[in-house]
């Protein structure tokens, strides 16, 4: 099924069909947003950049060559470049200056306060997933944290971050 989605998207991109963008958004949107956020560390700005990435994908889709790598690798490259370009804007610099010092607090909040985790627990499907695993999943796949940052923020050795993330996802897959 999935390879069909990748080839379907490739095919639609070659035709400059808007449906390709919808499929990219549905199947890769959250992963790409995470990758952008890894660079920008700003949810709102990352969503803006994702929006521009979707546009770039539609405009340059015909340049995608499946023989040179997977669609995802190409999407990640476009997203990373867009995110890096964004860091060079005045807009980004101003937001970074005003956020200095606040970031740590907000990160700490998102991890330490049980509010969001409580909300997540409310979701029955994922209710059985341990909180630390959810945090790992969120940080790694949805909140733009690199393994190194996770290691630093959660106090987990870098060598075990990878395996813990894997364990968390394994668990996730077993329950959904």
């Amino acid at each position: 099924m999935t390879p069909t989605i990748e080839s379907k998207i490739s095919h639609l991109l070659a035709e400059r069909n808007k449906e390709a963008i919808e499929l990219v958004f549905t199947h890769y949107g959250s992963l790409l947003l995470n990758i952008i956020n890894r660079v920008l560390r700003d949810d709102e700005m990352s969503e803006d950049v994702l929006q521009s990435v979707l546009l770039k994908i539609w405009q340059n889709g015909h340049n995608f060559d499946s023989s040179k790598g997977s669609l995802f690798t190409w999407l990640v490259r476009v997203s990373k470049n867009a995110a890096i370009d964004k860091t060079r804007t005045k807009d980004y610099r101003l937001s970074q200056e005003s956020k200095n010092g606040v970031e740590v607090v907000s990160i700490a909040e998102s991890i330490s306060t049980g509010d969001e985790i409580e909300k997540l627990y409310a979701k029955q499907l994922i209710a059985q997933l341990p909180g630390d695993q959810k945090v790992l999943i969120n940080m790694s796949f949805f909140e733009g944290y690199s393994h190194k940052e996770i290691c630093e923020n959660l106090g987990i050795p870098l060598g075990t971050v990878k395996t813990r993330i894997r364990t968390a996802i394994k668990h996730l897959r077993s329950i959904i």
Partner: peptide, 16 residues
Amino acid sequence: LRESLLKYAQVESKAP
């Protein structure tokens, strides 16, 4: 893996 994360994102409102 990607499909699992996709479902998770949908359920947990992590999707953009």
